[in-house]
Design a protein around this nucleic acid. Structure first.
Length: 476
RNA sequence: GGCGGUAUCGUCUAGAGGCCCAGGACACAGCCCUCUCAAGGCUGGAACACGGGUUCGAAUCCCGUUACCGCUACCA
């Protein structure tokens, strides 16, 4: 039988990195072992669900490259089936009507707490004579439908944890259909997973305690439960569940901070899974072929953005300029210094600039930021750079004047220019840095840049000479 | 409280009884390379939660303790 896995987020926010990781593993599993990867939006909680977050989930998944098979399903559209399933459970005796009101339940819970005891729902509370039940139903009294948990114990063979067993006595008769006839989460999930013919449920391990309930529901409904794999949580740097306090937690945040989707997937894959050995940087294809359920980890991982950025830097260095172009281009165009058409007109030049910058950037924003000076007409001088390399204006001006003269008389190629400037340094009796550094400030205004001859080449003769001239004037 | 889950450097992890007085990566520090910054190379500090077993031998198996996390809702 072919594998059918699903990712089932509730649209109550954005696509969380934890959710993205879960989606990624479901996707990897299907890619590796074959089958379908499905998406189900769990929007039964009308009050908290929004279309915006549904859209954010789609966008996040698409950005990461996790395309789902078949049509998206919406849990909210399945309520009629949930109700029918509940009714069937009622008829078969696996469930019963409970007329206890929520207020009464609250009272009982409060009393138990006051006594220092754990509140347990007592089935006898709902144990009414049949004619009394009929009378109340006829009268229209509200009731919830509760599942009758059987004697014994419930266990399953978890793909990541091995066998997990729960004594049934530890699980209360839980509500499956509220008095307003809306289904409760644990029930809707089972009804939907049965309907979608899900074979493996891979989700966060915060659902482990829900699993015995779901397994019992499958059996009561006459179905074999699917397999389960409970993935570890992702925590923030303080070891607590990742939340807004930890800063960026939505995959969209990272997209906007200039992280590449491939880097994000690679990083996420390493939270809760390891290919074994020392493998770290892996393309999507490599991850697919390396993925295995055996490599799934049990321990919660802490999300370390420092390592994500490092990894992104690795990807930037690995990604050809032609692939970076569509990502970085909108960023530099947004700076207003250049138009997309102008970039097209000098495409080779633009790609070579990207090549220069990508190897020393950690995010695509770093690239865009550093690219700005190559488009602008004037140079913005960083005060620190000026203080360091133009410390003595007169000396700086004279060196720059000499540099400019020499460059003007040299063929505009890196090798020739390097030879000329090194010769100049020798004549002046100084090290190369004494020339290159002031020159760097004149050309880009910054302490750091790509190699100075690369900068000269990419800036071009006219612009370079003009900037040197401008620097000399400013210093003089 | 009850039940369940987890436990290797600050962080991500390798490790499936001897190869481990524990390896790699991020971060940190130092050095090298070098026109700067990255990248790269080298070096350093840094961990098997604790206590009992089992075994000739345990990070690896068992038990207990502790800590953390989750569930314990007519939330999802």
């Amino acid at each position: 039988m072919s594998n059918r896995l699903r990712f089932a987020p509730s649209p109550t926010g954005y696509l969380h990195v934890g959710g993205a990781r879960t989606a990624l593993f479901n996707w990897l599993y299907v890619r590796r072992y074959g089958g379908q990867f499905l998406l189900r939006i769990e929007d039964t909680d009308r009050a908290r669900s929004t279309e915006d977050s549904t859209r954010a989930i789609f966008e996040g998944l698409r950005w990461l490259g996790l395309q789902w098979d078949e049509e998206v399903s919406y849990q909210g559209a399945n309520v009629a089936r949930h109700q029918a399933d509940a009714r069937r459970l009622l008829e078969s005796g696996h469930a019963y009507r409970d007329f206890t009101t929520p207020a009464e339940l609250d009272r009982l819970r409060g009393e138990a707490e006051a006594r220092g005891q754990a509140f347990r729902f007592d089935r006898r509370l709902a144990d009414l004579p049949a004619d009394e039940i009929d009378r109340r139903v006829a009268r229209g009294d509200p009731f919830a439908i509760r599942f009758r948990v059987p004697e014994g114990e419930t266990s399953w063979d978890d793909l990541v944890h091995g066998t997990i067993t729960f004594p049934n006595k530890d699980v209360d008769d839980f509500v499956i259909l509220r008095s307003d006839a809306s289904p409760v989460y644990n029930f809707a999930v089972v009804s939907d997973d049965v309907d979608m013919r899900i074979t493996l449920v891979m989700r966060g391990d915060d659902h482990i305690s829900n699993t015995p309930k779901q397994v019992m529901l499958y059996r009561a409904m006459g179905h074999e439960p699917p397999r389960f794999a409970h993935l570890p949580m992702i925590h923030g740097m303080d070891g607590k569940k990742l939340s807004k306090r930890h800063g960026a937690t939505a995959v969209g945040d990272y997209q906007h901070e200039g992280i590449l989707p491939a880097a994000m997937c690679n990083f996420l894959a390493l939270m809760g899974w390891s290919p074994g050995g020392d493998r770290e940087i892996m393309s999507m294809d490599e991850m697919v072929s390396l993925f295995s359920a055996e490599g799934l980890l049990r321990k919660a991982a802490i999300f370390d953005t420092k390592k994500l950025e490092w990894m992104n830097g690795q990807y930037l260095a690995l990604t050809p300029a032609t692939e970076l172009d569509p990502i970085v281009r909108p960023l530099v165009v947004a700076s207003g210094l250049v138009t997309s058409a102008q970039l097209d007109a000098r495409r080779d030049w633009w790609l070579s600039l990207l090549d220069l910058l990508r190897v020393r950037a950690r995010t695509t924003h770093d690239i865009a930021r550093q690219a700005a000076t190559y488009f602008s007409d004037s140079v913005e001088y960083d005060p620190d750079a000026v203080a360091k390399h133009w410390k003595d204006p007169a000396t700086a001006a004279s060196i720059l004047r000499a540099t400019g003269d020499r460059l003007a008389a040299t063929a505009w190629n890196a090798a020739a220019m390097e030879e000329a400037l090194r010769k100049l340094a020798e004549e002046l009796g100084v090290g190369g840095g004494k020339i290159f550094q002031p020159l760097r400030v004149a050309l880009v205004g910054q302490l750091a840049s790509p190699g100075i001859f690369d900068v000269l080449m990419v800036l071009g003769q006219e612009k370079s000479l003009a900037r040197i001239q401008a620097a000399v004037e400013r210093l003089g």
